[in-house]
């Protein structure tokens, strides 16, 4: 049995859904960020699979842009988490409830 495009896309969709549920359900900010990264990597997997199947390179090149963007996002995100931890000594989203009303 050969692994075709469908298996790749199903795997990538599953990874995407796992990441999505992780963002919605987990309470620890660091794990939420990891879930976001998982979603981005699911997209990367789909892109590379499509790119190979379609015989076009631009999908594979897009992956590099996505990786760069993800790195920038996490750099800003971790900086915010560090500042928050210094103020509140916690990274759980349950404790971050000052803004409401």
């Amino acid at each position: 049995m050969t692994i075709g495009i469908n298996e790749f896309i199903i795997a990538s969709s599953l990874l995407f859904l796992i990441g999505f549920m992780g963002v919605l359900l987990r309470r620890n900010t660091l794990i939420i960020y990891m879930s976001l990264e998982l979603m981005l990597n699911a997209v990367n997997l789909a892109l590379v699979a499509f790119s190979r199947f379609n015989q076009a390179m631009d999908g594979a090149i897009f992956v590099f842009f996505i990786m760069t963007v993800a790195a920038a996002e996490v750099a800003v995100g971790l900086a915010i988490i560090v500042m928050l931890f210094r103020k509140k000594q916690t990274v759980s989203v349950d404790e971050l409830n000052q803004l409401k009303g």
Partner: peptide
């Protein structure tokens, strides 16, 4: 300031989520 940081965290989490959905 705590409120600003909390707003930043919320915007980042949900903003990144929406970007990923758009990307998919």
């Amino acid at each position: 300031h705590l409120l600003s940081l909390e707003a930043g965290l919320k915007y980042l989490t949900l903003g990144a989520l929406s970007s990923t959905i758009l990307l998919f």
